[in-house]
Write a protein that binds this DNA or RNA. Sequence first.
DNA 1: GCTCGAGGGG
DNA 2: CCCCTCGAGC
Lengths: 268, 268
Amino acid sequence: MRLRLSTWNVNSVRLRVEQVARFVDEQAPDVLCMQEIKCQEGEFPRAAFEAVGLPHIRIAGQKGWHGVAIASRLPIEDVAPLQVCREGHARCVGAKVAGVEIQNFYIPAGGDIPDREVNPKFDHKLDFFEKLTAEMAGRDPKAPLAIVGDLNVAPGEFDVWSHKQMSKIVSHTPIELEAFARLKSSLDFLDLPRAAIPEPEKLFSWWSYRAADFRKSNRGLRLDHILVTPGLRDAAFRSGAASARVHDDVREWERPSDHAPVSADFGI
Amino acid sequence: MRLRLSTWNVNSVRLRVEQVARFVDEQAPDVLCMQEIKCQEGEFPRAAFEAVGLPHIRIAGQKGWHGVAIASRLPIEDVAPLQVCREGHARCVGAKVAGVEIQNFYIPAGGDIPDREVNPKFDHKLDFFEKLTAEMAGRDPKAPLAIVGDLNVAPGEFDVWSHKQMSKIVSHTPIELEAFARLKSSLDFLDLPRAAIPEPEKLFSWWSYRAADFRKSNRGLRLDHILVTPGLRDAAFRSGAASARVHDDVREWERPSDHAPVSADFGI
DNA sequence: GCTCGAGGGG
DNA sequence: CCCCTCGAGC
């Protein structure tokens, strides 16, 4: 059986219900992880997800900002909540589906100045990576676990439109790349979209709203990720190669999120 | 030839372009006077009006608030601008079409407390009526002139859902009714919608957004008016009776203004 | 309720 | 450029 896992920073789930329904109709994810739902749990449009066949839902919401959710075709088992957000924001929600633990994150963007000492948002971002890395380091790599979401780091030189220009910009500074790499090493995580679309091909999942024509300028970043433990390697490579992609056409829809969904398939 | 003159407080012309286009398609006004366009002159969606056959436009706009405009199928001649708004708001625009002078107003709502001494908005509203009445008093009643717009007064007891309850509420207090009556007397103006739909029939042009179902509660007010001088009486009664109406169905459209358009026909 | 402005965040 | 929070105004 195929399990399709998708992650999407929807930038307000209430404003994007139609686009989410269309994406689920067209791509049939079995589990959809969302970030920046920007609502409280009670404001989440549950009926729209039930209507589209994803009735099992876990939500970590707050008023107006951040917020993450997981909607699933299959029943969800609870998992122990992680304590990785120093500021108490709704940036993390977990679920276990078909024996696979899924941890869904919206990691802080980190502000403009890439200096922990002067920019508390940047400090919070690195602290989030450190807490998460420490949490993962105590786990069994053979347990099937996926870390997904908007991690707000473009980890490789082909994950940004210009490695040189972006190296000074928050999301692609050396210190963030190291933080991402340490997280990845903690459990020997596998980067599934990159396994499916290897470097040096450029791969982006986010394009700024500010560009008039995002296709033309194509100044994108790969901020949205699906990382899996060695315990999921066989399931991810069931058909010989990894099956994962960025749904960049979604970025062209009416009133889009600035992020495109990212998906990976597992044989379970 | 029939000249149809319509007035509509659109509550943001940029947000309401589709509804305006639909109204013009369905009702074919020759002159459409709008209030609360809520934009500057350069932000006015001219192309939409050209597309729908009203290419001749006069605009008095300001940033974000108030703002009035006249769009016409026939060419417009300029008229001398009136100085009736003490605060310098964009609340008045004039035009001459087919020999008829049209003065289009968005008179101040007047705040909550019906007392000039303590409420400067109420004072401004009465001052606006006084200045306008004085201006009209110096004119020739036989010159064809129409005063239209959101005058923010429901002038008669059948122009409100409850005369008793509304008599303490700004828009229907005795002092406002007197101000309206003095304006009407200044040139012996004729109230065309009332001539077409006589008292005691209730006639409203505005229903609050706050009512869940405006038809059911029907707590409306007649705030939008078409007043004409004796010089236009024959044209307005060309077919024997006055032809004027409130397009209350428009209040039921998707994302409506809280005001319905009001129209009157002239034989010219 | 609905639409603005201003301010924060991305 | 887009989306949130507030608060004002009607």
